[in-house]
Simulated scan of single mutants.
Amino acid sequence: MAYTMPVKIINGQWVVGRGGATGGSAANWNVYPDTGWVGVVLSNCDDVPMRDILDRETQAVTGSR
């Protein structure tokens, strides 16, 4: 954590992001400052495999899960 913002290093790259969900909706964003990529995932329905979607995003940008 850095200034209450979730920060990670994945495969040597910084990832800063935030996400949340409530009944019928979910949202997540990640910024990959080393690559210039930004990932945004929005959903307006229940039972979305958010973790799987975010894992695919991370793998696509960093090459690692």
Rank of each mutant, 00 (worst) to 15 (best):
N28F: 12
Y3T: 12
A60I: 00
Q59I: 04
L54Q: 13
W37C: 06
A27W: 12
A2Y: 05
G63C: 01
G17F: 07
L54I: 08
D52P: 00
D47S: 15
V31G: 05
V16R: 11
C45P: 00
P6S: 07
P6R: 10
N30C: 05
A21M: 08
N44I: 04
G23A: 11
V16Q: 10
R18I: 01
A60C: 00
T22S: 13
V61I: 15
W37Q: 11
G12N: 15
P33C: 12
V16Y: 09
I10N: 03
V31Q: 08
Q13C: 02
Y32T: 03
W14C: 03
T62I: 02
G19C: 04
V15H: 04
T58I: 13
Q13M: 14
V48Y: 05
A60N: 01
A2K: 04
R56T: 06
N28D: 11
N28E: 14
G12T: 15
V7G: 01
Y32F: 15
W37D: 13
L42G: 05
G63M: 01
T58R: 09
V41Q: 09
G12S: 15
K8I: 02
W14I: 11
G20R: 08
V7S: 07
D52F: 01
K8P: 00
N11C: 07
L54F: 01
D34H: 12
P49E: 07
A2P: 00
A26E: 14
T62H: 04
Y32M: 05
S64R: 02
W29T: 13
R56P: 00
T35Y: 06
